[in-house]
Design a protein around this nucleic acid. Sequence first.
DNA 1: GGGATTGTTTAAAT
DNA 2: GATTTAAACAATCC
Length: 276
Amino acid sequence: MPELPEVETVRSQLAGILPGLTVHAIEIRRAKSFQGNPDALVLQSVLRVRRFSKLLLIDFTGHHTAAIHLKMTGRVIAALPDTSYVWDVAYAIHKHTHVIVHFTNGTKVYFHDQRTFGYIQALPTADVTLLHYVQTLGPEFFRNLDQATFVRIVQGSTRPIKVLLLDQQKVAGVGNIYANEALWIAGISPMMRAKDLSRAQAALLFVSLESVMKDAIRCQGASSDNFRDAFGQKGTVQDHFRVYGRVKYPCLRCGTPLQKMMFMGRGTYYCVVCQR
DNA sequence: GGGATTGTTTAAAT
DNA sequence: GATTTAAACAATCC
């Protein structure tokens, strides 16, 4: 679920509450969900919360960092001290809560992951850029990817445009939801060969991707299924989906019933009329 | 029971 | 080398 906008939502929320807090203990309930040495973070304080594409990074004193990838169903939920949210207790005892970070002031951060593809990794801050995921990341939306570069990348690939968008090594940050949405906005078929897009189409697609992801950040992410923000709340992007999950509903532009197909192993929603 | 699910990596096939 | 496909990670939902 979590694509760039969802991870950014969590990042900005954590950035508002974690800096300055000191780790008291790290409770690991499922060993495979935590990689590296948790002791490297204990008694260390949060310096800042960063993000590389979909990878969340919490930097600590002591030159160590917690790198968190949510993959399909990961959640990072923060429970502030002296509050008794219903979901606080629920997460504390939930069977899919795999790691709990206890801070000295009573704040707790739950790492919850139903499908367990996600992970937290403790590593030296200097080694973050050496991570395979970071090393192979292509230029990233809102960070170091401009329109001209995007157009050049698109025109250099013979693969279907939707496949290219989902390849994090080519362009970083887009996932299946926002690929579907932006292609509809730009009126481009997901199956079209990337290099067959005109310069104008590629430019329009870039603008559409940035627009749809910027809106998504404003709406705190898409919670069509599993995603929750750092305070356990749903985002609202799913209320404004143009195509994702809307199979058989009328296209908002032309009224034609939207179609769904499996394309390169991913659910693909589109309008056969608007997206030639 | 079968098939699908927002991500990524790896291996094998083409 | 580029690309495609499948499988793997595993749980849940419809």
